[in-house]
Amino acid sequence: MNEFTIPALRPPDAALAATIQAKIDTKTKPLGALGQLEALARQVALIQQTITPVLHRPHVLVFAADHGIAAAGVSAYPADVTHQMVRNFAAGGAAINVFCRLHGLELRVVDAGVRGSFADLPAARNQKIAEGTRNFLHEPAMTPAEMHRALNLGAALVSEVHGTGCNVVGFGEMGIANTSSAAVLLHRLGGVPLADCVGRGTGLDAAGLARKHAVLAAAVAAHPAVDGTDPLAVLATFGGFEIAQLCGAMLRAAELGMVLLIDGFIASAALLVAWRLAPAVLPSCVFSHESAEGGHPHLLRVLSAQPLLRLGLRLGEGSGCALAYPLVQAAVAFFNDMASFESAGVSQVAAD
């Protein structure tokens, strides 16, 4: 087994911070008038360690996989929908396809562990670990070997994408029942009460939500030795192949100095694992939105994250990344192109 090597990440060098802030503060606007865009510009400049940041060949990577826990009735949709949606992605018909085309992002769709073959679909990259995870109500979702392979495959894909010149990458997913995995990851690794982690997923009614909570409580009780002190054990026991590949991909992207666009609840759960493994991953992360899925606000609080958008989204697919990307572009554009008081000949407010 080739074990995944956790990168020794360090936060961006803060030596440029004062210069970056001065550049922002001398733009032709009142101090702080562009609000969160100013923080975003500062973040991108620090990630890239430059006062002239650029965004090259933005990508969205969508990892898809099936989950054994779906057999316990935790989703409103049948497991076959994962396979069907990958075909929809490959055909260009999903929301993420529309948004990526609209905003000029390159989309890559990855079969991380979907039941069935996509041999007829060159657009679906084959990184299949197995035909879905096992049912973690009864046994660990994956073996350590499967988990390490998934982490390594995710990392390798980001290295490949980075090699094309890409320096900003969004992370999305697809997998029926993956909100169940994300909920337990948040509970175990974030210390959040399970009831606050469990949401309606694809649209469960009240009875379905109660059943989902009962199933996940039983699953947690079935693995008492797996706690938050060992993030990889938690990932292997309760995670999904798409979540593991996302985690590996995020860690490699941070290692390569890329800007990471984080989507909703599932992608954030993958980041939670990555953060517990290498806390310095966080400064590279732009949180695209706060999902309407019940656990996501709690997860964002655990990560001390400030999302760019609150649109009531709960789709996944990386859709929030594609919608938020124009804000990243706007932040970089004002930072690079907006006139300063000096260059524009505009008077500044007199100092007290």
Rank of each mutant, 00 (worst) to 15 (best):
N167I: 04
N152V: 13
F241T: 10
G228H: 08
R314I: 00
L9E: 08
M174Y: 01
R42Y: 15
D120F: 04
L315I: 13
R108S: 15
A269L: 04
S288Y: 02
H187N: 15
T237F: 10
S268R: 01
F89S: 03
P58M: 03
D80E: 15
Q49N: 12
L186W: 00
H162V: 09
F241K: 05
A22S: 13
I47R: 01
N97D: 10
S340Y: 08
A270G: 15
D196V: 01
A330I: 07
L153A: 14
G191Q: 07
P122F: 09
Q49H: 14
G203I: 06
R134C: 10
F265D: 00
A217Q: 11
A22T: 11
A324D: 03
G312M: 06
A22R: 15
C166R: 02
L9P: 01
I266G: 00
N167T: 12
A324W: 02
G320P: 05
G68E: 02
A219T: 03
A210V: 06
L194W: 06
E293H: 08
A45W: 00
S117T: 07
V62T: 14
M147W: 05
A41D: 05
R252G: 00
M338D: 05
G294S: 14
D196P: 00
M142T: 09
P78N: 11
V158T: 12
M85N: 00
V346T: 15
K27F: 07
H59N: 13
A72C: 14
L34N: 05
A112S: 14
M338W: 03
S340A: 13
A141E: 09
V60A: 08
R314G: 02
S159Q: 15
A156G: 13
V54Y: 12
F334Y: 14
A8K: 07
A14T: 12
R301Y: 04
G191T: 06
L61K: 12
S117E: 09
D13N: 12
S343G: 04
P12L: 09
I129K: 08
V62S: 06
A214K: 13
V86W: 00
E106L: 13
A39F: 14
M258C: 13
A292R: 07
C247G: 06
N126W: 11
G163T: 03
A207W: 09
A72H: 13
E255R: 08
V86I: 10
A292G: 07
L107G: 03
S117C: 02
S291E: 02
D263F: 01
A156P: 07
H187G: 08
P231D: 11
S181H: 08
V54D: 11
L271A: 10
G35P: 02
L105A: 05
L185N: 04
A90K: 03
L261I: 04
V346I: 15
G170C: 09
L261E: 03
M1P: 14
D205W: 09
G295Y: 01
V349P: 08
